Amino acid sequence: MTNAPAEFKLGQIGTRPEICAVYGGSRNSGGIVPSVEPKNITLFSDHEVGVTFGYHDGWLAEEDEFGPIFEYTGAGKKGHQTFTGKYGGNNAAVRDHVAAGRCLHLFVAVDTVPGTGTKRHRYVGEFTLDTAKPYVVRESLDEDKQPRRAIVFRLRPVGTVQRVAEDEIPAATVTGGKLVAAAITVCKLIEPEKNTKKKAKRSAVPEVEAQRREADLSDAFETYLTAQQHTVGRFQIKIKGRTSILLTDLYDQTDHVLYELKGTNTREAVRMALGQLLDYGRYVKTDGHPEMPRRVVLLPSLPDEDLQELLADHGIGIAYQDGDTFIGVPPSLS
């Protein structure tokens, strides 16, 4: 998908005015620069800026069956990042770039023009969002050093791109989990239903209906727990030697219970939840609860008997929604 001459070669360096002259957009648009004509979105990444906000843009060391991923943090320096508002509109443009017919071109800051503060940027190549998981949501710091929700786009290369060591995300030096706010979740950003006769074509927003069901279940259960005066959070988990970050579903701090939510009762969903709980549960510890948490799969309804036995064989509990209440939650909430 190419709409403008690729005048910048891989590794070529230029200033914002030089780059925008080729790919379009305003040179003063921040890190995400959309262009109507030519149909491009230029992404500017700066490793030094990322460190001040507690994140690292760059290549994940771990590749899946579809190849490499470059993580790119969205726009918005203060408060939660969103898909609406002044900066959120640019995030939405990235999210919807396929439907809009726009190319994503990535540049990384390398130095400044001698004798000035003007930054120069190196061309990494053309990208598109991962179709299976276009973005994740994590906790990071805003410009006031306050925790906030950050959108992290997962970019896939289109054709040949430049991959150099300085663009790699540093691997974690220790293994451990960090307790973060329950609001740090992609579920909070799922788009609402639109009242249209024909469903709009979405780009890079996979399985939106399933995600929405899971989001509704998460919101309902979080409300249920907090109404019982329980404190709810999540864990961001880093593994020593790896660059990717894991994010759990809801964690009940009061009862030390880790929940994995699924919006459907299919065997595939239940097996995935089982594996996630067996994995994540090893790292969910607090000063008050250094022991393994109780682990529970939360579903929209009770699964079939065979799946119940599967979970029981691994010491995993089951909770499910029943109207305005939930069945199978720990005794203190029953």
Rank of each mutant, 00 (worst) to 15 (best):
E207G: 14
P5C: 06
R120V: 13
E126C: 13
T243R: 05
Q146P: 04
S45N: 04
L247V: 06
G11H: 08
W59G: 02
P17Y: 07
N28Y: 15
C103Y: 11
P290W: 02
Q308H: 11
K240H: 09
L278R: 11
T112H: 03
A319F: 00
L299H: 00
L43V: 11
V186D: 14
I32S: 09
T231K: 12
L299P: 02
V94L: 12
A182V: 02
L60R: 07
L179F: 03
V257Q: 05
F326Y: 02
V257P: 03
V164C: 00
H56S: 14
A165S: 08
A200W: 13
T52L: 12
A109F: 05
G30F: 11
E37D: 15
E143S: 09
G88R: 13
P68L: 00
V51D: 12
K78E: 13
V186Y: 09
T226F: 05
T231M: 12
K119Y: 00
L311V: 07
K77A: 15
N3I: 09
T264N: 09
T196M: 09
G11P: 00
A220I: 08
V98Q: 11
P68R: 04
K133M: 14
A172T: 03
G67P: 00
P331T: 04
T116C: 01
I151P: 07
E207F: 15
V174W: 13
V296Y: 09
A172I: 06
T118Y: 07
E7M: 12
P300C: 01
Y224S: 01
P303E: 04
R148C: 11
L155M: 14
T160E: 12
P331S: 02
S332P: 02
G24R: 11
H80E: 12
R267C: 02
D324S: 14
F153K: 07
W59D: 09
G241T: 06
I190K: 11
T42G: 02
P300T: 00
D142H: 01
N28A: 10
R212P: 08
S218Y: 10
R122C: 05
Y259E: 04
R149M: 03
C103M: 14
Y320V: 00
G30K: 14
A132S: 12
I32Q: 15
D144R: 13
R294Y: 07
Q276V: 12
V22H: 02
G74D: 10
T118G: 01
D322K: 12
R154D: 04
N195R: 15
E309K: 12
V296A: 06
R95N: 01
T116R: 03
F66S: 15
V174F: 15
Y320C: 02
